[in-house]
């Protein structure tokens, strides 16, 4: 009995790994998704630059807002594309035919989506630092970006699995995602702003707690309902 259980959990982890590996291997070759996300992210920063006049004075307080708006917009591009690859060629059926729990597919996709998001963020941060002559490489900020991205992809992966199965899928994802993801954006912007402005830690802590709570709750919900999103 116990051995059987161990075997099954090994099976589960291997399937999660297979899905994530497959996405990363394909993306490293084509770079379709990452390049689209990156170019888009840089364009968003440029648009902000001219619409907000990011001069030295105002910059400090708006930097975190600009960063998160950029991540959120670029993120939908990646989420959409990553799920469309499964849907367009019927590969989703191929995943569903495998003898593993559906949530393994969810976690695999969530891990690859999170990785794409972190790669984009890891490139945007130094570029932003360079453009505006500030240092964004602070351990606190990186922690916030990690927590925020986990929440974003946890919900985003679930909702993108729904949106690609609708007729209006090109426009559907941001409309579904943004009202749900608002707490992550608020908390991440506040916490990042706190670190950038060197606020005392007890003013940042509530936002970190909120991010952690959100991450845990929505990962759990997505784990429970993903079945209903992919099954017929």
């Amino acid at each position: 009995m116990k051995e059987n259980k161990e075997k099954r959990s090994g099976n589960y982890l291997r399937a999660i790994g297979a899905v994530a590996w497959k996405d990363l291997a394909a993306e490293l070759r084509s770079k379709e998704l990452l390049s689209a996300m990156l170019v888009f992210a840089l364009l968003v920063i440029f648009i902000f630059n001219f619409s907000l006049e990011l001069d030295a004075k105002t910059r400090n307080s708006v930097t975190s807002g600009v960063l998160w708006a950029t991540f959120a917009f670029a993120g939908t591009l990646g989420l959409n594309r990553s799920m469309a690859i499964e849907k367009d060629r019927g590969c989703l059926d191929g995943l569903l035919l495998a003898p593993v729990d559906r949530s393994a597919i969810y976690f695999g996709k969530a891990i690859s989506n999170l990785t794409f998001m972190l790669i984009v963020e890891a490139i945007v941060l130094p570029v932003y630092s360079l453009l505006y002559n500030t240092n964004l490489f602070q351990p606190g900020l990186i922690l916030v970006i990690l927590l925020g991205s986990v929440g974003y992809t946890a919900v985003g992966t679930l909702l993108s699995a729904m949106s690609v199965q609708t007729r209006t899928r090109d426009v559907m994802l941001p409309i579904l995602l943004f009202p749900i993801i608002l707490p992550v954006i608020i908390a991440a912007v506040r916490a990042s702003g706190g670190y950038l402005q060197n606020l005392p830690f007890d003013q940042i802590l509530p936002w970190l707690n909120l991010l952690i709570v959100y991450d845990v709750i929505f990962t759990a919900i997505a784990f429970m309902v993903f079945d209903y999103v992919v099954e017929e």
Partner: peptide
């Protein structure tokens, strides 16, 4: 199914949104 999943996700996120706006 999609409608039910989305109302469920919404029902959980709105209270968190409320708390974060308060905060």
């Amino acid at each position: 199914r999609f409608g039910a999943v989305y109302t469920l996700v919404g029902a959980v996120s709105v209270p968190i949104t409320f708390i974060s706006i308060r905060l």
